[in-house]
């Protein structure tokens, strides 16, 4: 199965140097252990743009689709046989990146 591990962030501070080093080492381990699919960090929500073309008349809006105190700062897409393994990886991920992690399965 594949799982989305979302990094939940609050505030305007960036990741520290230590966090970056820890996450890089964790990523190399994910690759070596065959869990790695994809991962990335995202710009702050104020860099977001929402496009709505549901009725064929595209409307472009500046800013995130929903304003929240906590927001998505980055993510991993990981391969894991079941939720127990995904939760174990999320437990490590949370420690390394020093943020809360939401785990959701891909359908």
């Amino acid at each position: 199965m594949q799982y989305l591990l979302s990094v939940i962030h609050e505030g305007t501070d960036l990741g520290t140097e230590e966090e970056l080093v820890a996450v890089s080492a964790f990523n190399r381990r994910l690759q070596a252990d065959g869990h790695w699919v994809f991962a990335g960090g995202l710009g702050f929500p104020d860099t977001a743009t929402v496009v709505d073309n549901r009725d064929g008349r595209p409307v472009v809006t500046d800013g995130p689709f929903v304003e929240t105190k906590e927001f998505l700062a980055g993510f991993w897409v990981l391969e894991a046989p079941d939720l127990d393994v995904a939760l174990r990886l999320a437990t490590e991920a949370s420690r390394h990146c020093n943020r809360k992690i939401e785990v959701r399965p891909f359908l």
């Binding site: 799982y3 046989p81 079941d82 939720l83 127990d84 959701r104 399965p105």
Partner: peptide
Amino acid sequence: ATAGIPYRVPSAAE
């Protein structure tokens, strides 16, 4: 079913 909660007896450590 969707999140993949396993049917498994946890390992001795867990």
